[in-house]
């Protein structure tokens, strides 16, 4: 039995777009993504990047909503592509999701308790009514809510922060090992975000639940995350411990990203201006070379020849995919993408 809870090996997802006149164009949404989450200790792993970076594709792959073009998802030693029905059901029980929109996930016609009953019935957690109420109460208490305050209410009577905490409580009810949280705080008010982040930290520390925290917001990741992967157009630009990557970003894209987060201090203003290249140039991802080439201020001829591998930076785990660090050791060679046909 493997010690890893979840192993993602060389995950690649390619979408084929059909243009006018039958021309086909391939979009690599996720390329050669590798990630290992150990059984213990639990950790919060951040996947960050701008829209179109592939972070949501990754979440959907892990949740089983989309199939990989190539690569493997291995859960507790079992490759999910060859799993049988029971293994799949166990997987769906152990891996739970919390989504971005706390307004869209509730059915407005049902009271909040319906969300919990649906889960209990589906996984046959307990047939006993009193026990089931106690279970709901316990998981609500963990996220700082009380059953009598929320269960009989309708979704519109709760704030976005409360709804998102209820989704956390719902996930918790099944005692999962991993929660995929896709932008769980981006639609919640800034002042209420802390309550959700706090629940994530407590679930990790007290219940041993790991998180795949998908976000575009580096500052919340910095506050709660252990490891971080920063994606750019489907490929990892930089990875490592969150503090190390954000304090000392090495990839030019990550440097630009960290630099662009507005500092809540009127004395520290943005320095310099950025000029974005035309859209089509940015999106026609350079298939052979570095994806960031059109926007990079350090670009070299070499960057067009082949995609840079991840190089090991100072820290044990800190790696950046950029030829500026080609004097360092290569962490993993690039596997070139072959036209996928599955």
């Amino acid at each position: 039995m493997s010690q890893m809870l979840l192993e993602i090996r060389n995950a690649t997802k390619v979408y084929t777009q059909r243009g006018l006149g039958g021309r086909q164009r391939e979009v690599i949404a996720l390329q050669n993504f590798t990630l290992n989450i150990p059984n213990s200790p639990a950790s919060i792993i951040t996947i960050a990047g701008e829209s179109g970076s592939g972070k949501t594709t990754l979440a959907q792959v892990v949740l089983g909503f989309v199939r990989l073009s190539s690569g493997q998802i291995i859960f507790n030693g079992q490759d999910m592509a060859t799993a049988d029905a029971k293994q799949l059901k166990d997987y769906r029980r152990d891996v739970q999701a919390v989504f971005q929109d706390p307004f869209g996930v509730f059915n407005p016609f049902y009271r909040v308790e319906h969300v919990f009953h649906a889960v209990i019935n589906n996984f046959r957690l307990t047939p006993n009514k009193r026990e089931n109420r106690a279970m709901i109460e316990d998981s609500l208490n963990v996220v700082g809510l009380r059953g009598e305050d929320v269960l009989r209410k309708y979704p519109h009577q709760l704030s976005g922060g409360q709804r998102q905490r209820i989704m956390m409580a719902r996930a918790l009810l099944i005692k999962p090992k991993l929660i995929v949280a896709d932008e769980p705080v981006s639609m919640v008010d800034a002042s209420l975000r802390a309550s959700i982040l706090d629940v994530m930290i407590r679930l990790k520390e007290e219940m041993g639940i790991s998180f795949l925290y998908i976000t575009h917001d580096l500052s919340t990741a910095y506050q709660i995350g252990d490891q971080i992967f920063i994606l750019y157009q489907g490929a990892v630009a930089e990875k490592g411990s969150t503090i190390s990557v954000i304090d000392r970003p090495h990839h030019p894209y990550v440097q630009l990203l960290v630099d662009s987060v507005p500092v809540p201090n009127p004395d520290v203003k943005w320095e310099g201006e950025i000029i974005l290249p035309p859209e089509e140039e940015m999106r026609s991802s350079v298939h052979s070379g570095c994806r960031f080439y059109p926007r990079c201020i350090h670009r070299m001829d070499r960057c067009l020849e082949a995609q840079p591998p991840l190089y090991k930076i100072d820290d044990i785990d800190h790696q950046a995919a950029c030829y500026l660090y080609s004097d360092k050791e290569v962490a993993a060679p690039v596997e070139t993408h072959q036209a996928a046909t599955r």
Partner: peptide, 9 residues
């Protein structure tokens, strides 16, 4: 990194 400041709406 600082402790999270938790508030209600």
């Amino acid at each position: 990194r600082k402790p999270l400041k938790i508030t209600e709406g």
